[in-house]
Every structure is written in structure tokens, then in C-alpha cells.
């Protein structure tokens, strides 16, 4: 399968660590995914909140630019919008015709869209297993999927809507200990981080409390908004509510990259708000620090 990458706006800014760690891992497993040339924003929540046709047209313009290749996506919100547009356009000739008028060319809604979790966890599972050099032994991880990867299932067709396991299996392959916990697919509040942070505090506090109760060392995420909300809001939750978590919140690609021997800077571990280095040191898992125990395959 030939892939082309749709990074989305967050990966140029607040999620640049997701961008660098995705490409670091892609390099280790031989995943070639050049960016879609001239990609534009998918419209995200703002578009579907405002105008249904625009919310289908912006993704369609990008999917046309993929020229038939499978579109690889990292951001859960982009993934959801691209899949939703495909669903509307392929399923309704009237929508297809309207979108064609708006975009200026006909699009059939059939360009495949895959999240990096699906590509690494389903399409390239054996390559991932072969690339693991330094298993994440002793690291207890809560895999957090958020809303938009698995819902609505009729549209995303992503794993199981209530208990997805793709990230769990990937990190298990990387040697980590993944836990069964109930808040895998709870909502973090997403872009309310800007418009009403009180919603974010309520929701992230409850997710972090559940992760802590599950006894984990850290959380793994697959979405820029999930990561930022769970990571950056820990300071506010401590200040306003007195709940201290100090739980590092990684992108799953950062943990995979660690297990594959990528360097600290390739994975942008320094850009996380809750510093993961004390945890990684305590577990003997620092990037580039475990050559003696390296597993050779």
C-alpha cells in the first residue's frame, strides 16, 4: 500500500512532537509517507459547527490531492473529519454533487483514510515488532483513545468503539505493561480548552484520577487535543483543586520510538509539560541510555 501523510494544523504547532515522533517511528519501520502537497485545514469542529457543506468540502479538497493513495493521519480530529466527509460523499449522490460544485472537481468519497494506529498496529504489525530494540520493561501505561478515533463506529470503523485495543497491542509489542481501565474513550473536552476551560478541568481531572487509580506510570495518547489537555491542565488541576497527578502524557509514537531506540530529540520528549525524564530514568528507559541492555534481534 502506498501512503501519503495528512499532518493537519496542530502537527505544525502544539503537536510538533507528535509530528517528529511519527516520522521517527516511520523511519524505523520503513513506512514511507510523503506529505500531501499543498494540504489545507480539514475545517475541524468549527466547520461542522457552522456549515455542513463546508465541513465536507474542505476534507474533499485534501482527499482529491492525495491522488488515490491511502491517506495516513495522526490527528484524531482530522481523521474523524476526513472519514465523515467520505461517508457523506460516498453515501449520498446529492452531497457528492454539491461538494463537486464547491470544490470544482468531482470526488467519489472512496480514498482510504487510515490512522497511524491502524497503519502501525494492523498494516505493519510485523515490521513494528521487528523494530523493537529496547523493550519498555516495567513501564505501566494507560492507553487513552479519546472520542474521535472510534466514534461513531459506523463511520470510522476503528477497532472496538467501547474498548479499543489497537494502541494497547502496539505498546504491548513494545514491551510495556498496558492496563485495563474504564476511561479509554471518555471525552477530554477538546477545543473547549480555548472557549471554556472549566469543561476541560472537569473532564481531564476525572480521566487523570481514573488513570492514577489504575496504578499507571503514564498515559499514552493518539490525538493532539487529548495530549495537550491531559498534559498541560495538570498544573491547573493542582492549583485549583489540589489534585496532583504528575503523570507524563506521551504520544504513543514517542513510546514506540523509545522502544525502537530513537533519540530524545527525535521524539521531542522535552516538549511535554509534565517532564517524563524522572520516570524514564527511574525505570532505566531513557533514550540512548540503555545500550548495555539493548535487545538484539
Amino acid at each position: 500500500m502506498s501512503y501519503t501523510f495528512y499532518p493537519g494544523c496542530s502537527l505544525e504547532g502544539t503537536a510538533k512532537d507528535f509530528h517528529s515522533s511519527s516520522y521517527a517511528v516511520a523511519g524505523k519501520v520503513g513506512l514511507d509517507m510523503p506529505e500531501i502537497e499543498g494540504w489545507i485545514c480539514c475545517g475541524s469542529t468549527a466547520a461542522h459547527n457552522s456549515e455542513a457543506l463546508l465541513a465536507d468540502a474542505l476534507p474533499a479538497a485534501n482527499l482529491l490531492a492525495a491522488r488515490g493513495r491511502t491517506v495516513a493521519v495522526a490527528c484524531a480530529s482530522c481523521y474523524s473529519r476526513l472519514k465523515m466527509a467520505n461517508h457523506h460523499i460516498a453515501g449520498d449522490p446529492a452531497v457528492r454533487a454539491k461538494v463537486a460544485e464547491v470544490v470544482g472537481s468531482d470526488y467519489d468519497g472512496l480514498t482510504p483514510v487510515r490512522h497511524l494506529l491502524e497503519i502501525l498496529g494492523e498494516d505493519m504489525r510485523s515490521q513494528v515488532a521487528a523494530a523493537v530494540r529496547r523493550p519498555l520493561s516495567g513501564l505501566k501505561v494507560a492507553c487513552y483513545y479519546g472520542c474521535l478515533l472510534s466514534r461513531p463506529p459506523e463511520i470510522t470503523h476503528f477497532d472496538d468503539a467501547e474498548n479499543p485495543m489497537l494502541m494497547d497491542r502496539l505498546l504491548d509489542t513494545a514491551g510495556a505493561t498496558v492496563v485495563d481501565w474504564p476511561h479509554k474513550t471518555e471525552c477530554c473536552g477538546a477545543s473547549f480548552s480555548i472557549t471554556d476551560p472549566s469543561i476541560i478541568l472537569d473532564l481531564t481531572d476525572s480521566i487523570l484520577a481514573m488513570a492514577q487509580a489504575a496504578g499507571v506510570d503514564c498515559i499514552a495518547t493518539a490525538c493532539p487535543l487529548c495530549q495537550l489537555n491531559l498534559d498541560m491542565r495538570q498544573k491547573d488541576i493542582a492549583a485549583k483543586r489540589g489534585h496532583r497527578y504528575d503523570l507524563p502524557v506521551f504520544y504513543f509514537t514517542q513510546l514506540l520510538g523509545l522502544a525502537m531506540g530513537c533519540s530524545d530529540s527525535e521524539l521531542s520528549l522535552g516538549s511535554l509539560f509534565v517532564d517524563p525524564h524522572p520516570l524514564l530514568r527511574a525505570k532505566g528507559l531513557e533514550a540512548g541510555a540503555r545500550l548495555a541492555t539493548e535487545v538484539r534481534s
Partner: peptide, 11 residues
């Protein structure tokens, strides 16, 4: 205006 479009309800 407070709905986060998380799609838990429709799922």
C-alpha cells in the same frame, strides 16, 4: 453550545 461532539450518545 456545551456539546463537545464526542459522539458517545449516537454510538
Amino acid at each position: 453550545w456545551e456539546c463537545t461532539s464526542c459522539h458517545t450518545c449516537i454510538t
